[in-house]
């Protein structure tokens, strides 16, 4: 068995473990729903009881806030969950297998493992999970586990079935240090945008729930009540998305420098350049929307969602079906 075959084995194993993690995270969401149902049934949420609970759990002194940094301001406090911990552990295990698959592919090819669609997909999804796990150490976003493992599983499935190519040496056009920098930073930016997308989507769900609660109407998707408030989610999404935006700005610049060296011009409205520009503009719009009265909240969240959709379109559709100079999909 050669290195590439080991890489494939490791990747399929990672996909299996991601699937288990996805199940564990899904069970957790279901438990959240039933937990909210139980709270409502017990009518524990009388104003006085709720106030006392919040005073007890919300951290009255500023000192306790420093360690958590992001206040857990969920409407319904949600305790420790075994399935959540199982989900995170399985994600870490799957991530390790995924990392091994990526490194082995790189060793098999004798270069960085991001020179064709199969490898972009493998490295890009690895970075999505990496960003997720790093952010978990700073904020409790484990409720996004279903989204992250689900998205990564789908992308890896498509990559393994449709994008797989044998190990091939780099064509002269890709023999540049900028391949290492430009493509890596773009993939890393995608990791942040993916997380920002998920946070913005949950923000919209949460905002809808909050509006329904304010109008004293019935809510669906009860687990949303255990998640942070829409304002907190919006702030988190913003922080994640601006990191993505900075990385994307750098991607554009590094790409221009490389384009000048390889193609003789730093900007030529190649289809991939056009879409990179469109994505940059959408996220620039998102940041401006956050500073425009009437556009904060749900409207800006929609822009973040459109932005990540454009990122996926740029990866999955433009690379494969559009004619242009970035013809390195290997397909």
């Amino acid at each position: 068995m050669n290195l590439n075959e080991l890489s494939i084995l490791s990747l399929y194993s990672a996909m299996g473990v991601y699937a288990l993690a996805f199940i564990a995270f899904s069970i957790d969401l279901a438990r959240r729903s039933s937990a909210v149902g139980a709270v409502q049934a017990d009518e524990l949420s009388s104003p006085e009881a709720r106030g006392a609970a919040e005073a007890a759990s919300g951290g009255t002194t500023t000192l306790t806030r420093i360690s958590t940094r992001i206040a857990n301001d969920a409407a319904t406090p949600y305790g420790r969950s075994a399935s959540l911990r199982v989900g995170v552990s399985l994600t870490v295990l799957a991530w390790a297998l995924h990392l091994a698959a990526d490194v082995l592919r790189g060793l098999a090819a004798g270069r960085v493992p991001w020179a064709n669609m199969y490898e972009f997909a493998m490295t890009g999804t690895l970075l999505i999970v990496t960003v997720f796990l790093i952010v978990l150490t700073r904020a409790d976003l484990r409720f996004l586990g279903t989204f992250v493992t689900g998205l990564v599983l789908i992308l890896l499935g498509i990559a393994a079935l449709r994008f797989y190519v044998e190990v091939a040496p780099l064509p002269p056009a890709l023999q540049s240090v900028w391949l290492v920098i430009h493509v890596f930073v773009a993939s890393l930016g995608t990791g942040f945008f993916a997380l920002g997308f998920a946070l913005s989507a949950v923000q919209l769900l949460q905002f809808r729930r909050e509006s329904l609660v304010a109008e004293a109407r019935a809510t669906r998707l009860r687990f949303v009540a255990t998640l942070p408030s829409s304002a907190t989610l919006e702030n988190l999404a913003y922080r994640v998305n601006i990191i993505g935006f900075i990385l994307w700005t750098f991607t554009l610049m590094a790409g221009s420098i490389w384009a000048e060296k390889a193609w003789g011009r730093y900007w030529g409205w190649d289809t991939k350049e056009v879409w990179t520009f469109i994505i940059w503009t959408i996220y620039a719009g998102y940041i401006h929307a956050r500073a425009t009265r009437g556009w904060r909240g749900s409207r800006s969240a929609w822009l973040a969602i459109i932005g990540f959709s454009a990122v996926l379109f740029n990866f999955g559709i433009v690379n494969v079906f559009f004619k242009g100079l970035h013809a390195y999909s290997g397909l």
């Binding site: 056009v274 520009f277 503009t281 401006h288 929307a289 425009t292 009265r293 556009w295």
Partner: peptide, 18 residues
Amino acid sequence: MRTALFLLLLLAIAAVPG
């Protein structure tokens, strides 16, 4: 701000046909 935002998004849409 609203106009700037509108123009920014319009620019993104206008770049698509190319």
